[in-house]
């Protein structure tokens, strides 16, 4: 109860989101003018905006590694890139075709599963002028599917949020539970 009194004064509810967007300069001209006019006559919103301006930059806790770190970063990535192949090829071209369609990843995966099956059973589904993929390349189809799946990160993010919810959030919500 006591901590509630320490909470910052609330801005007008209907301007709350716009104040944040105003702070980040994300409002259209018309909305910006509207909020500026409102700010002239509303102390609570002015205070709220001041709080945003004071608080938000402070949340950036930057790490500043030394120059040697960046040098080793560049060296490492150079090494890692030289042993890592760029997989641009027939698969990626095919992928780029699917990508521009509004086809869910699952459907793409299904098509690829079919393609792999065809590859393994018949070995003749690719265009005649394209050389057949080598074994190593065929194996990396899985890698591509993994990549596509990983790019659909909302699955991942939803799962994370569910896990964090299950875990019992720290701080804030444990107060609420009391």
């Amino acid at each position: 109860m006591a901590e509630r009194e320490d909470l910052p004064r609330q801005a007008c509810a209907r301007f709350e989101e716009d104040l944040i967007l105003y702070h980040y300069q994300e409002l259209s001209d018309a909305t910006r003018h509207g909020i500026e006019t409102h700010l002239e006559g509303c102390a609570a919103c002015r205070l709220s905006l001041e709080e945003l301006r004071s608080l938000l930059p402070k949340t950036i806790v930057a790490d500043d590694p030394p120059a040697a770190f960046w040098q080793s970063y560049s060296n490492d990535i150079h090494e890692r890139l030289s042993v890592s192949g760029n997989t641009t090829g027939w698969r990626e071209v095919l992928l780029s075709l699917f990508r521009s369609w509004p086809v869910p990843v699952a459907a793409t995966a299904a098509i690829f599963a079919l393609a792999i099956t065809l590859t393994l059973t018949r070995g003749q589904w690719w265009p005649r002028e394209t050389p057949p993929p080598e074994l190593g390349e065929m194996l990396s189809v899985t890698d591509n599917l993994e990549f596509l799946k990983s790019m659909d990160f909302f699955d991942s993010i939803d799962l994370l949020e569910a896990m964090e919810g299950q875990e019992g959030p720290k701080g804030e919500t444990s107060h609420r539970a009391l």
Binding site: Y73, R80, S84, N86, L95
Partner: peptide, 24 residues
């Protein structure tokens, strides 16, 4: 974490490089 951040960001670059062909 400095090392984890280095590793994750490098991994992202490597993934991007490997799959650059699928970048539109």
């Amino acid at each position: 974490d400095r090392e984890e951040a280095k590793d994750l960001s490098q991994e992202a670059f490597l993934n991007a490089f490997r799959h650059l062909g699928s970048f539109d």
